[in-house]
Amino acid sequence: MHRFANPTRFLRLAAAVLPFSAAVAALCLGAGLVWGLFFAPPDYQQGDTVRIMFIHVPSAMMAMGVYAGMAISSAIALIWRHAIADLIAKASAPIGATFTFICLLTGSLWGKPMWGTWWVWDARLTSMLIMLFIYLGYMALWQAFDDQTKAARAAAILALVGAINLPVIKFSVEWWNTLHQPASLITMEGPKIHESLLWPLLLMIVGFGAYYLTVLIFRVRAEIHQRRTRMLRMAQADRHNAMQAAD
């Protein structure tokens, strides 16, 4: 009874999904990259620089999508005390933070030729930077507790508070940006995406999603195994105690 919610069902499901998601990730990312980097035509305005978009846009979407997923699993974990939901939220955070970082990095790389500087306080980049801070705070909170059940609940509360706040932050940053930025800058969302770029972009988005799912499964599995190890060690200590008491 005191072992947690039995993760066998999750493990079975994960084993079934894993080869599929890994294959989709490999195929889509491979095809999307080759298509996007070598065959898609350069943009008439931005030239070859536009190809960074094939990494930048999917990672921006994943940064937000992963956070949404984290908030939903946190809500499930809080309401139904579902142990796997906790682990999914925990395992998602570093992946989401990495996507956010990649998004910032590619945005900065894109900005150098377009804006002539590595960093511009553009509304989207600024929102992403704040997003990265929120991910880091979430991960730091998990680290701060020794008791994993407490860590899970605290982190879940923070994830939900963050989810409520993110739209407000995004709105306020956009408001701030219109006050301070000359509107003439080209932004990434600016030029309408040509149809020839759309297909490789879609492939990349699907590939990023499948990649997330694959890594998530690996990470949650690792968390389950770690938890088992902790349980076994505790049980070992308890048995030792009981045997000594019996002697």
Binding site: H2, R230, M234, D238
Partner: peptide
């Protein structure tokens, strides 16, 4: 009643 303390069951029933 049962209590968990840091994932460890400390008493039950």
């Amino acid at each position: 009643l049962a209590a968990l303390r840091g994932e460890r069951l400390i008493f039950a029933n």
